[in-house]
């Protein structure tokens, strides 16, 4: 049943450029990028129990890596850009993570927030390097070695770049699935549920937390690098704390207890924002109310609600009751 559902979703995603309008296809591009970011963030929160409020730092690292490489160094191959973004994030996350994972709960969240804001200030203040508030251009990258600049930009985004992003997301999802299903993933869950017990069983809690932090940073940077070509411009807002808040919101909206929950959250967030923004100026208020409602009434997020319905439907079926 789940496999059939997944296959249907994949088929819909693959068919979308042929059945949906160009605008909605371009709206899927940030969804793919945020999905990659959220897979990483959820490894840290959903599986390891550490809530980062500064993860936009690594989105910024990825986005600015794409900007620097395309517009300053002439590196146009997206594969190289994604690898460089992940590499840069690992280099930055290694020392930051080393410090942050010594703490948990609010202290961890505040430390990550502080490092995030430090990076944001760097982007804003060193404008001779980063362009300051004006940001930097991200030029259209080559895909698999092909320079597609002769294709109109919208066509580029809605066809080759769209499918490229789908493949990146598929690879990122597969790798993350293997990570969370591995003994390493089980150790992370053990750390989340009872770090003292995990430690007593021989799991190096700090080291494993650090691994999770660095992996999630690399994911965020890859997602950040995917965001750049769609907008064509990166700016310090990408690394601002409100952006960190947005991705935490997406994760809660979809449900962090489910592997695919954050991805559902990203999809709903993007399309809901698109609709509500066009209707009311107070869309932030609407989103605030939704967040409050989720925390109070559905802490498991949208996937938590679905799972609950599935469980209750299963129980009724077993008891011979009519399906809802």
């Amino acid at each position: 049943m789940r496999r059939a559902g997944l296959a249907l979703v994949v088929a819909l995603i693959l068919a979308m450029p042929f059945v949906a309008g160009d605008y909605y296809v371009t709206l899927m591009l940030p969804f793919f990028a945020y999905s990659v970011i959220l897979l990483g963030l959820n490894l840290l929160f959903g599986y390891t129990g550490l809530l980062s409020f500064g993860h936009a730092l690594f989105i910024g690292v990825g986005a600015y890596a794409a900007a620097f490489l395309t517009s300053k160094f002439g590196v146009m191959h997206l594969e190289a850009i994604l690898l460089a973004a992940a590499g840069a994030a690992v280099l930055i996350a290694a020392p930051i993570g080393g410090l942050c994972v010594r703490y948990v709960k609010i202290y961890f969240a505040m430390l990550t927030l502080a490092f995030g804001m430090l990076f944001h200030s760097f982007l804003l203040k060193f404008y001779f390097v980063t362009g300051g508030d004006e940001g930097m251009r991200v030029l259209q990258p080559f895909l698999l070695g092909f320079d597609l600049s002769q294709i109109p930009k919208v066509r580029f985004l809605t066809r080759p770049f769209y499918y490229y992003s789908v493949v990146v997301l598929a690879v990122a999802t597969f790798v993350m699935w293997r990570i969370v299903s591995s003994p390493f993933g089980l150790c992370l869950r053990a750390i989340r549920d009872n770090p003292d017990k995990a430690q007593s069983l021989g799991v190096s809690v700090k080291r494993y937390r650090w691994y999770a932090f660095v992996i999630s940073a690399a994911y965020a940077a890859v997602g950040g690098a995917l965001l750049g070509p769609t907008t064509g411009q990166v700016d310090p807002n990408l690394a601002y704390w409100t952006h960190s808040g947005n991705i935490v919101f997406m994760m809660l909206l979809g449900g962090f207890a489910n592997f695919f929950g954050p991805l559902v959250g990203a999809l709903v967030f993007i399309f809901l924002q698109d609709t509500v923004m066009s209707i009311v100026p107070y869309w932030r208020l609407v989103f605030g109310a939704i967040l409050a409602l989720i925390v109070i009434a559905a802490p498991g997020g949208l996937m938590g609600l679905l799972d609950r319905r599935a469980v209750s439907w299963g129980e009724k079926s077993r008891q011979g009751g009519a399906p809802p």
Binding site: Y23, T26, P30, V154, Q233, D235, N237
Partner: peptide
């Protein structure tokens, strides 16, 4: 800039307006 580019695309591709006016911030203009 990121969100405004999306709004701009919506006006152009979905609403199919004839012209778009507005824009105050230089970062957005860029």
């Amino acid at each position: 800039p990121k969100d405004t580019v999306e709004r701009f695309r919506k006006l152009a591709l979905q609403t199919k307006v004839d012209v778009i006016v507005g824009g105050i911030s230089t970062a957005v203009g860029l």
